[in-house]
Computed example of a mutant assay.
Amino acid sequence: MAGSRRGRRPGPPRVALIVETSMAYGREILHGIVRYVRENGPWTVFFEPRSLQDPPPPWLEGWDGDGIITTMYPQFSELIRGTGIPTIDLDDQEPRSGLPAVRSDQHAIGAMAAAHLMERGFERFGFFGYPQFEWSRLRLESFRRAVESTGRRCEVYEPAHAVSWGHQMPAWEAEVELFSRWISGLPKPLGLMACNDFRGVQALDACRRADVAVPEEVAVIGVDDESLACELAHPPLSSVIPDCRAIGYEAAGLLDRIMAGGPRRPATIAVPPRGIAVRQSSDVTAISDPVVADAMRYLRENAARRFGIGEVAEHVGVSRSTLHRRFRAATDGTLHDAIAGMRIGRVKRLLVETELPLHAVAARSGFAHVEYLIAAFRKATGATPGAFRRAHRGAGGP
């Protein structure tokens, strides 16, 4: 690192925030920085929207600032170090910059994903990552350690193609095709961790291509809670939620102390994840009976319309009595209860996530009449649909 700049100037410190804003991870970090500045500022902030592929800001080399918070982009990491300006490194790609750093606790992320899948009864596990990135390798390391500590095994997919630093897939279709063959050949049910949400979306695509039911045969969990990608996925993708706002807050506090004359020790603060956003891709109990898993997939995919037990039995190729017996053995519940639960779950999502009137919610949830919906919903939840919608809209979801 170059020599230190002059002492702190009078007035608010001048701080550059060189953080990508194209994904939720970076935007959430910025929210954490904002909170710190509101509580402890003011700062004069230099900030502009950025993507992962943007070149260095043209003003950076000659900039006379007091501090920088940045994801240490490989394409200009030497430039930043050469400025001599106190800098906090947020990047997970280059973990040995020699600068003070604040990052997600990758080991905690992997362990949390493993615990989530094991709690759902899975005995077999897989991992889909980017082996050339350290953050992915660390997530795999802790995921596999947690799985193997219980005597289970973790299969690891070896990607067909290398990826660039910016996560650009050179051949999405080819990767999906090879992954679909890999997932087809593994025993099921299986709990799969994807190293991030975009890898998770790719895994879901591959499972559809392989005619593998998600979550009944393979439950998938990603990382980062990129909510748009997770909600657009089919089915919606569960995800470990990094505490990005805490990362931003800690980084701002660390920089503030250094700008005030504190030591620039190259320590790393590892921030544990907040928890898991559970969505449909892993919201399941592991089902080892393939007929029952297929039946559950049929229920999920047809929850928007009315159908009978006979139709389900015909789809899976067994008699009604056989289906009832195998369903109870595999799930400790009845097929009727599963259908009702699937429909009530769809009603809840439509009440919270849409503005549809109740008659439209009924039509999209397999209920012939609004009155039937209201009675079934009250029995299942103890509340009317209207009261449920009002309560959970304010709380951010069911």
Rank of each mutant, 00 (worst) to 15 (best):
G382A: 05
Y372E: 13
V278Q: 07
T322F: 03
L358E: 07
R274D: 09
I269Y: 13
E311D: 05
A277T: 10
R264A: 12
G333H: 14
V291R: 08
V352M: 07
V312H: 02
A380L: 10
G366K: 03
L351E: 11
A375E: 15
A362E: 02
R264Q: 13
R343G: 09
G382S: 06
I344Q: 00
P385W: 05
V347Q: 13
V361G: 00
A368F: 02
V312M: 10
V271C: 10
A267T: 14
S319W: 04
A383I: 06
P263R: 09
A380Q: 08
G275Y: 13
D294Q: 14
A303V: 13
V284K: 08
L350Q: 05
L351Q: 11
T268P: 02
S365V: 04
L356V: 01
V316W: 10
L373W: 02
F327L: 07
A329T: 11
D294S: 15
R264V: 04
L351A: 12
F377Y: 05
Y372F: 13
S281L: 07
I344P: 00
G333K: 13
S365T: 10
V361E: 00
L358Y: 05
Q280E: 14
R349L: 14
A267N: 14
P357I: 01
T322A: 14
S365H: 03
G310F: 02
T285W: 11
F377H: 05
R264T: 09
R305L: 06
E355L: 13
V361T: 03
V271T: 12
T331P: 04
